[in-house]
Design a protein around this nucleic acid. Structure first.
Lengths: 116, 116
DNA sequence: AGCAACCGCTTGGTATACTTAGCATGATGG
DNA sequence: CCATCATGCTAAGTATACCAAGCGGTTGCT
């Protein structure tokens, strides 16, 4: 794998960082959960290193999102053209913790936000 | 990622080799298609090395199987803990049509709904 | 004031993924 | 018989993923 440089990985890092912050985890906490060292995680988040699949999975697990999502984001899941993955409404409907009413509420809010 | 040695990887190697032979490809040919060196592929097939996700994807593509299959075979697709949870927040984050503010609004609404 | 406990980051080192050169064998065929 | 040429493999080096130690900054407590 030679030339494939690019910021594919830096955006992945940003994504991880965003998710981590949304989960209210410190860098060290997530590193601990994902079983990597905290400096390394820091570097990953800043796009300095390309984490291996194992590490990626560890991070995904720790953040409680599917490895699938992680790989997709890392651009190493078939996808190329077409993110068939992850439509917001689909995700909402699949959610196990919301009632049907709540789902519709949320979707309505979503559509409301879109329409402006 | 520490101790996870084991022959997880050797069976993966065997799998790859089998697929390669089924496709009537020589080691060098597949290596070329997958954009890795042939000695390296040889070592991967014999389980001496754990290929990175990128390489795995390259091989999967070259063999015309889905990356999913490859990862699953490599044991780094959700196995273990396997809560197929959530992903609503992730989907929101990934949405291309919402601004950052709007995303956070929507996530806040989502969490609000959860908390009752 | 201190100092303790957190935060994220830099530095320097080790382990391992990965490559380039080349070896040994086994076909082909001139 | 001896060139090729393809096969898979070994050996030795380079690149990079990953870690342990430690630094400067911020917060908060006594």
């Amino acid at each position: 794998m030679k030339g494939r440089q690019s910021d594919q990985w830096t955006t992945l890092g940003e994504f991880i960082r965003a998710q981590r912050q949304l989960a209210n985890l410190s860098l060290r906490q997530l590193a601990d959960l994902a079983q990597v060292s905290n400096p390394y995680l820091s570097q990953v988040e800043r796009g300095l290193y390309k984490p291996s699949a194992e590490v990626l999975k560890g991070i995904a697990d720790a953040l409680k999102l599917s490895a699938q999502t992680m790989y997709a984001r890392a651009g190493l899941l078939d996808g190329e053209g077409a993110d068939q993955v992850n439509d917001v409404e689909v995700a909402i409907r699949l959610d196990g913790d919301l009632s049907t009413e709540q789902k519709e509420t949320l979707i309505r809010v979503y559509r409301g936000l879109l329409g402006r």
